[in-house]
Design a protein around this nucleic acid. Sequence first.
RNA 1: GCUGGAAUCGUGUAGCGGCAAUCACGGAAGACUGUAAAUCUUCUGCCUUUCGGCUUCGUAGGUUCGAGUCCUACUUCCAGCA
Length: 413
Amino acid sequence: MKEALKFTINKKLEATLARTGLIETPNGVIKTPAFIVGGTKATVKTLTVEQVLALGGQSVLANTYHLMLRPGSDVIAAAGGIHKFMNWHGPIFTDSGGFQIFSLGMAYKKGIDATSHSTKGDADLAKHSSSQLAKVTDDGAFFRSHIDGSSLSMTPESSMELQHKIGADIHMSFDELTAPLAGREYIRQAMDRTHLWAERSLARHKQLNDEHTTKGDNLQALYGIVQGAREQDFRQESARFLGERDFDGYGIGGVFEPEEISETVRWINEILPEGKPRHLLGMGAQPADLFMGVQYGIDTFDCVAPTRQARNGALFTYDGRINITNNKYQQDFTPIDGECDCYTCKNYTRAYVNHLFRADEILGLTLASIHNERFVVHTVDCIRESIENNTFFEYKKEFLERYYGADKAEVFL
RNA sequence: GCUGGAAUCGUGUAGCGGCAAUCACGGAAGACUGUAAAUCUUCUGCCUUUCGGCUUCGUAGGUUCGAGUCCUACUUCCAGCA
């Protein structure tokens, strides 16, 4: 039997909240800061685990909601746990399913953009959410499967039971997100509920770990998730509430505008106990997110954007994002990025990847995903090194000015 | 040679006497942040920044208030028969 999680801080960057460290789990270690690779349905879309390892992935994050629907937690338990099932033998996170209750339930993808701000209040939100797939009460969430429409529910307890069955290393407490449309009143309600659920998640989690102890199985870790949307006092209250409780680490949840990240994360991380790891949920679509997150105390990120955008033809380069399907790359026989050390850049050209996308050949998705994921993982690795070397701010300035242009980069410096 | 059918946007099509240009593909570009996503959005005859204007249904005639649509001839293609 191994202990659930051990976090050690290696180096702190003066006058910031940034630090480097090591998260040790029963299935391996994560050098932090680190980018956790998106593996929602127990697979990193289009990639084998060998490819994920080769691009430098240290850990993957899977999703309880998706795995509950398919193949079901019993199948994964019968397979001997998610590590064996998906052949990934490093650390694995699972998200609780809270995000899906939000994204399926609120007016998120059906007509209203999750990242658009509005001054509209709770009444509008309620109106928009009434016809959606999910309903939330203090007891838990009641929702319909996006696959077959069947009625399902999830509570903090059932989320913990599912996550323990799936058997990842680091679990997330069951939480409720709010849409950017939500007013303070609803944000407060959702945050209070998230706290209530966090305590219930923790209680059930401890019982389940006791059962593992009895059987001599590895222990699993639980992160509490901070909510409170864009409200400073709520975020601080949430960090205080959860920080006082015995979680192994903390997740920071919600939906952010890119320019809100650093401020919100700072409010929280100034309060959370320094000695525990902090995960920023779902952020990392752009390099600035990574630099700002780390500077204000984030240890791990996960984000689906690198792989999703790769599948849709948007590829990172150090000079900014490009769309590889564009006509101008049809005869561009240079790598996607000449400085990138990924398998794709070392062996293929923009013209070839352009051809694969135009011809609808699935290898294009794989090559693009390898590149984008490597770009992000490597960037966070370089950020870690820059903290160790005391060159963080120089590296950040150089990187962001080149990527965004000096004018646009200024807001991040 | 005879008989029948067809000809509309880059391509394949919709149209069935009343504002031509539907849908798909192809093409151009953009978006995507705890993955309902190999998805979605916009544009794709010409001119115009917008508003809007103009052109066009193989060719030439005809019928009709009005023709992509009906009639005649021609051209080309397809099928069947010689």
